[in-house]
Design a protein around this nucleic acid. Structure first.
Lengths: 207, 207
DNA sequence: GTCTATAATCTGATAGAC
DNA sequence: GTCTATCAGATTATAGAC
């Protein structure tokens, strides 16, 4: 009863509408903030009534969840694309700086996405297990990258995430569109690398 | 026509109600998030109808503004109380660590306040000039403190704020109630001090 | 799958009696 | 200064026709 050409067409069409809705949700949220997403606006933007969205998503939180998932997929792709270029670099310091810029560019290029992925700001929202798994995958990818630069224990990694999210956060909050904190990234990486060298754990946690 | 004992009593009573309302607003916001503040809830908590609040505040944003102002006053007092104790310390490294803990304790002890003071998360809200002046005063106080530790140029100060807000933010977002990032503070300060020493600007910006 | 209709509730804010 | 009454909407979500 399944697998007919007609079913194929139908699911493809449905999938297209799903991504169309999520894309429209990102647009709204970039204009009116994370909390400013409403089903009516969303329906209007995608060419249907707000109530019809419920044929695709059971609730508003399910839309946030799809955005959360898509955001982390974008993160993984963003880092993948740029780390292959870094891999060809000989200088590990240079590679670490590139990685840091890659992360901060991702954050500052879309502040609302940063807010959804890396901060807890929507009161009722908890990511589904499936979306959370994607988030963990992104986190692990970043951790594996840093291990290459000698960041092989949890404490040092936590210090790096604090520094990099701190730079992103200040850049977004206090100098949107500028580079007041972004231009401190190279200096921050040099500082972190020097620190990591003095706190080296000999037992690497690599596989 | 003014200055009679009756006027005195009246303004004192009014002032008491004003702070009572702001205190109740903090309670609500700690329970339901920054965006979860409503005039009806606020009125109920303070013992009047929601509409009566408008006798004290012209709009909801004026309440956010009062909270913003009060939050920065609390920050100034918090730092003042603890920096006098630090002043008696001989070791500048120790003093810097105490200052960093003071800042991060302030942030993590009240996440919603941190959100209101240091992040831009309420869509329509802009602090009034009066409240903004208090914020600038708090910022300047922190800057003057760091100058004592050799952080005498803007770039180095920006790096410190990024590190300290980054640690606060990670602590709040990813380990609420714990100390996973808080326990990295001493190490972070040592790292920042070593960095500041190598980037010393001879022309101090002190008065 | 999309519609209309609507439930049920919340929102900030104003007018005017007392 | 607090109340009642009310405006003028907004919100998420469901039921049922087509």
């Amino acid at each position: 009863m399944s697998g007919t050409p007609n079913d194929d067409r139908r699911t493809r069409r449905r999938q297209a509408t799903l991504t169309e809705i999520v894309d429209a949700a990102w647009e709204i949220v970039r204009e009116h903030g994370l909390a400013g997403l409403s089903m009516r606006d969303l329906g209007e933007r995608v060419g249907m009534r707000g109530q019809s969205i419920y044929s695709y998503f059971a609730s508003k939180n399910e839309i946030y969840d799809a955005m959360f998932c898509q955001g982390y997929e974008a993160f993984i792709e963003w880092v993948d694309d740029r780390s292959s270029a870094e891999g060809s670099s000989e200088d590990p310091t240079m590679a670490a700086k590139l990685m840091a810029h890659t992360f901060i560019d991702f954050c500052t290029s879309d502040p609302v996405r940063y807010q959804l992925l890396f901060q807890r700001t929507i009161p009722g929202f908890e990511p589904s297990p499936e979306s959370y798994a994607v988030a963990v995958q992104g986190y692990e990818q970043a951790r594996q990258q840093l291990i290459r630069f000698g960041v092989n224990d949890q404490a040092t990694f936590d210090l790096w995430t604090a520094m990099l999210t701190g730079l992103s956060d200040q850049q977004i909050s206090n100098d949107p569109g500028g580079d007041r904190w972004e231009r401190l990234v190279d200096r921050a990486v040099e500082m972190l690398l020097a620190d990591a060298a003095t706190h080296l754990h000999q037992e690497s946690e690599q596989a």
